[in-house]
Design a protein around this nucleic acid. Structure first.
Lengths: 239, 239
DNA sequence: CTAATTGAATTGTGATCACAAATACACAAC
DNA sequence: GTTGTGTATTTGTGATCACAATTCAATTAG
């Protein structure tokens, strides 16, 4: 009965240094954002303002602002009771997010294509090389970040682009599953879709570029090709 | 000594009543959101927390939260100086937003199709009738809202849908141009794209539905078919 | 033992204050 | 008139406090 019941599962997020010129709110925001992306916070676990304030040793104010922003971006969910938590993943939602990624990102890629010059192309090539290096090292975290940089760099070639915030919102909602995607990439990197994309860019072939990006995303999420496999990863992320 | 004289153009937003159970932050948020959608705030005009707090007769706190949320949704822009303002529209950005709408909304429609049953179909038919009525009345505001309801109702037929927040973010960035779109619809409502969409839904024809939604959006924005025309509307919205 | 209840602790919301940075402005120098 | 410069004001940020609503725990009734 009076079992020494611990406090609810403790929240542990990787702390980073606060750079100069960065407001406390921005600092808190980036740490919480990374925590969500890395699956450091259990889905369904309530995030209270005061608890996080004590954890990060700041006043409740910056926490409030960061939580609200992350909720607006879909990284967190605000319940009717005004409780804030990391939303649970479901197989159907995962499928929707995956297909939304494909639809939006292939569109963003095609829209960026006309703006890609040789300088940008070199930048993309370098990023792709870095990814290959990281894959040989097997540095999962690095691969994931570099892979996102590759996509981001491609889409932002379009100076009038408006979709990157939407894309990043989906990435946030995918959270730790984004890392699993890049993990699986390693096994199948025989077919380098980034290379396909680069060749399509060189040929200024928008359709081929869309195919390559779509395939890159879809094959990355092949680890969830069956409902059973996906369910395993979901359960894994909830513990 | 110096009197509080407003040198800047005064901010005037339509005030609404605060419903019960709605927090002040939510109330402020919805008013500011409507103000942006209706073009009541001049692009480039700085929105200061204290000024809005005085205007709405609340403390600065709810204003801060509402502004941050709207900025996260793309309705407002936070400059490096941390000034908050309604972003300026450009011809290129308008084009990007329009094409993004087409890509995402046609995707959302196709994804919703399998979930549309007869009940939902009736709901859509009723909404379409209401739109026709409003068009005969020439009630621009009503048309605009009903038209958004039609699209929203269609996309939310999918219970696992994840794209509506992204779509609404684009609507917000389009702001007053969304109304112009529905305005122009009136002139060309000979070809009722909503009817096309409905027929595609009845036939469970995803591709035809995408075509209909794309055409509905594109024809709505036909008022900006030439750079000169668009420029006129942009200048109109900035004064 | 289960379920309901009640009181204590915790929570989000919103107001107020302090402060450093950014801005506006009057005035001097050219 | 134009440009620089100092001060005065306004601004966003962040801390602290008050309060109503919610949550949690122990206790009680069945």
């Amino acid at each position: 009965m009076t079992k020494p019941m611990d406090k609810k599962s403790p929240i542990e997020i990787t702390l980073t240094e606060r750079n100069e010129g960065v407001t406390i709110t921005q600092w808190v925001y980036s740490m919480l954002r990374n925590a969500v992306m890395n699956g450091e916070i259990l889905p369904g676990r309530a995030l209270t303002i005061r608890e996080l304030a004590a954890l990060l040793d700041v006043s409740p104010m910056p926490i409030r602002e960061a939580l609200r922003q992350l909720a607006a971006e879909g990284a967190l969910e605000i319940q009717g009771n005004r409780r804030v938590l990391v939303p649970h993943m479901t197989a159907m939602k995962f499928d929707e997010l995956c297909e939304a990624r494909i639809a939006i990102e292939s569109h963003a890629a095609a829209r960026a294509l006309p703006y890609i010059d040789n300088v940008k192309l070199d930048e993309l090539r370098q990023l792709d090389c870095l990814i290959d290096d990281a894959q040989e090292q097997g540095n999962l975290n690095k691969i994931s970040i570099l892979n996102q940089n590759f996509h981001r760099s491609l889409y932002t070639a379009n100076p009038h682009q408006v979709t990157l915030p939407l894309i990043e919102s989906i990435w946030l909602q995918l959270g730790p599953f984004m890392r699993l995607a890049t993990n699986h990439l390693k096994d199948h990197y025989l077919v380098d879709r980034h290379n396909d994309a680069m060749q399509a860019i060189e040929r200024k072939d928008a359709f081929a570029l869309q195919i390559a990006i779509s395939a890159d995303i879809r094959e990355g999420f092949a680890f969830a090709s069956t409902p059973e496999l996906l369910q395993r990863f979901i359960e894994e992320s909830e513990s």
